[in-house]
Design a protein around this nucleic acid. Sequence first.
DNA 1: TTGATAAACGGAGGAACCCTCCGTATAAAT
DNA 2: ATTTATACGGAGGGTTCCTCCGTTTATCAA
Lengths: 192, 192
Amino acid sequence: MGNATVKTRRKPRADSLRNRELLLDAATRIFSVGGPQASLEAVARQAGVGIGTLYRHFPTREALFDAVYRHEVDHLVELAEKLAGEADTVEALRKWLHANVRLVATKKGMIGALQLVAHGSPDLKAYSLERLTGAVRLLLDRTIAAGKTRSDIPPEDLLRTLIGIFYSQSTDDWQPTALRLVDIFVDGLRKR
Amino acid sequence: MGNATVKTRRKPRADSLRNRELLLDAATRIFSVGGPQASLEAVARQAGVGIGTLYRHFPTREALFDAVYRHEVDHLVELAEKLAGEADTVEALRKWLHANVRLVATKKGMIGALQLVAHGSPDLKAYSLERLTGAVRLLLDRTIAAGKTRSDIPPEDLLRTLIGIFYSQSTDDWQPTALRLVDIFVDGLRKR
DNA sequence: TTGATAAACGGAGGAACCCTCCGTATAAAT
DNA sequence: ATTTATACGGAGGGTTCCTCCGTTTATCAA
């Protein structure tokens, strides 16, 4: 039976897939510096496609932003999977948390974006929370299994702490502070 | 000696003052429904003046927003001064707090605006915090002097609680909840 | 009162952006 | 090779931004 849809669909066109990817990358860059209300025409220009193509792929600004955000979340999950291969489990966890800090630091626009997300689509919120929690769990479980850290901290709490660190630091020069706080927290997790 | 400026300045023109006031009122209305990035041309239209006039009075969007916000704060201070004449001191306090809730509720845009303020000009933040604290103190001291409420709550804490109530409630239908929370808090202040 | 003039006014205009629509181009299927 | 479903690009109409400048007017001095 294979496919339950009415007619056998054509394979999606190669240029379509490629352009979608180009747009996503461009949007990530543009939103990073311009915040979530940056020019969509600039995104299309940056991607090297027509504005019409952008709107066909992402009918609304929201849709584009949603996709970009999911993309970023997926990247973080991938990174976690890669780090899960490292020998030093605690260090792997620490690296992943630092990557989070740097991501938000680099892509300043993301901060404003996060506020939109918080008040925006519950779908997106649920998706990112779930996936990121999974990523943390992946790394955290290994440190626990290795007997390196205390075992009474659920991944959700660790994630919430991370978010709390992002929110509480709203000045320009917050990155070093955030990294330090992360380190302190990780040290706190360590058994001794 | 009077005026230390170089030359004796002319009196500001009457139309200038009037237009400034018109613009401020219009901006309050427009920002209320459209949020802090609403169209400035719409503000000028609403005020019945040319767009050039708007830009002369408020060279940047920030400047206009700043002025509107100060205006609103001043209104709340005036209200506090008026309520300070009421016989029932606790009721006066309650009314003022409710006015705060309704203000933010009516002017939805203010919520987004508050976020801009939080990360924006420290001047504006300091100004509003100071003036509003003064207003609360005015009302709170009277209830304490009348022996109606406990006396160990500084006005700053009361204000922070109010802000906390605004921030924590981010859904559409938050107004009744916020009013209830305010009432509970005021009841908590009461001596019995 | 009556000029003189500093100050304010309005809005045209060029640039950027938003989003839609549709003629053209092209990848997949036959 | 031909067909055709899909995707592409960008012109175009509408909105907003902000500047610039010719015109109007409120103040002040005579």
